[in-house]
Structures are given as C-alpha cells and as structure tokens.
Amino acid sequence: MRRKIVPWLFLAPSLGGVILFTGLPFLDVVKRSFQDAMGTRFVGMDNYRAVLANSAFRLAAGNTVRFLAVCIPLLMTVSFTAALLISAGSNIGRESKGAADTGDRYSVFRTTLVLPMTIPAASMVLVWKILLCPDGVLNQFLSGASGRTWQVDWAFSRWAFPVLTATYLWKNTGYDMILWLAGLQGISGELYEAAKMDGAGVFARMWYITLPGLKGTFGLVGILSVVNSFRVYREAYLLAGSYPDASIYLIPHLFAHWFLDLDIQKMTAAAAMMTAIALILAVIMGMPGMKRRKR
C-alpha cells in the first residue's frame, strides 16, 4: 500500500509547480480564448477565426512549418553523417592499431562539433555579421571568385532563410550527433562481422543493419530537434531584428508582436490551437520515448 503513494510523493514538487504555473493558467488561456478583450463576454470562436484570418499568422505559421520541414531532415542527415564518420573512423583505428590510440583524435572532433551548442547566440552574432553584411567576407569571396561585384545583404534579403538554416545547423549538429552515436553504439558489432563474412557491402550493411538498428533513435532525435528548433528565434532576432525578411517571419516573431500590443485574445487563441496540435501529434505518435512493455 505504502509503495503506491511513493511515486506521487516524488512527483509532487514538479507536478505541483507544473499545475500551478502551466496547467491552471492554461485553463485560463483556453477560457480567455473564447472571451472578448475585457474578459467579460463569451464570443464563441471569434478569436480563433480572427487568428486564422490574420495574414501575419498565416505567414508565420507557413514559414514555421516550412522551416521545420526543411531544417529537421537536413539537421538529421548532417548529424547522422557526422556520427557515421566519427564512429567509422574510430572503429577502423581500433582494428588497425589496437584500442590505445583510437579515441583521442576523434574525441577532439566530437568536442568541437558539440561546442557551438554552448555558445550564446548573442556572442556569435558579430562574427556572423562579419561574414554576412554587405561589405562582408562572403560577398568579398564571391566577388573574387566570380569577377563581378556582390553586395548582397544576406541576413536581410530572401537569403535570410538559408542563413537561418545554416546557423541552426551550426548550433545543433553536435547535439544530434551524440544521440546518433549512442544509437550506433547500441548495435552489436557481431552483426556487422557476420554480414561481412556473408559478403554484404557497405550499403547492404547500412540498409539491413544500421538503419533498422536506429529505428528507436530516429523518433527521439526528431523530437529533440524540434525542441531545439524554436530557439532559432534568437538568432533570427539578433541577426535581423523583430521585423525580418518575410521568409523568416516565424511564430515567435508573431507572438513577440502580440505581446507588445498585449493582444491577449489572439495570443490565447493561437496558444490553445498550437497546444491542441502538439497533443494530437503526440497521441498519433504514441508518446514516443516511453516504455511500452510492462514490468
């Protein structure tokens, strides 16, 4: 009997805080999303209609979906490649030279690739400006290479989207790479040995052993990449200000503007909608990362 209440005692501080600071206020958010600005009269779905009809919301929602659709597969591919290279490199080293000297060189690479994650966006912005401003290094390089003058303002033009993508990759590759490396480590080396004996090539081994072995990792890397993706607003804001090029006007920009006007109705309606979408996705994906089997 005693055992039954124990987990709830452990959970109490966190759960209490989440309920007080997120749960109850969220109910308030939902309530307000159906009310007028004064919070006195119910207006049905009016706020939701207003948000959906809002052109800024459509732009921001579309851009955010596009950003996620482009960046997350890209990040997962790049980080997966990096993880494969590191793991292949240190495996070859182990086979040819013995375990002694393997790790060192590759751990420098690992450390380096994870490092950007720890550097605050504000610290890097000046360096990105050196590279990207109209008088900057990138334009000079392109002018030199092509023979004509380049004066593109990379962060403030239609190039802002690729720029933002690049900063996202720069920052998050290391994190995902560690996740992939953990997944790769979980695959038994004997499987590869056996496959090699049977004459399976590099691609066959990748297709029949590596990828199936990473099935579980795949979803988790995806989720954690989404978690990190919304932080890209910091780079966007610091590089291009609160009214950036239309191609990188994201949901966070929109909320920042609504906050300035204290447009509670639109904010609450949009927040309720986005939470609903996240919940639906979570249910569809079956609460990834959770143990299914009973113990």
Binding site: V18, F21, T22, P25, F26, D28, V29, I223, V226, V227, F230, R231, I251, P252, F255, A256, F259, M267, T268, A270, A271, M274, T275, A278, L279, A282, M287, P288, G289
Partner: peptide, 15 residues
C-alpha cells in the same frame, strides 16, 4: 514530452 516540445512562446502566455 508535449510540454517540452511546445514552443516557449506558447507556454509564455500562461506564464
């Protein structure tokens, strides 16, 4: 997990 994935701007309204 859902709370974790929600963009900060959404929970910010509650906060």
């Amino acid at each position: 997990v859902v709370l974790m994935v929600l963009p900060f701007q959404v929970t910010q309204v509650s906060d």
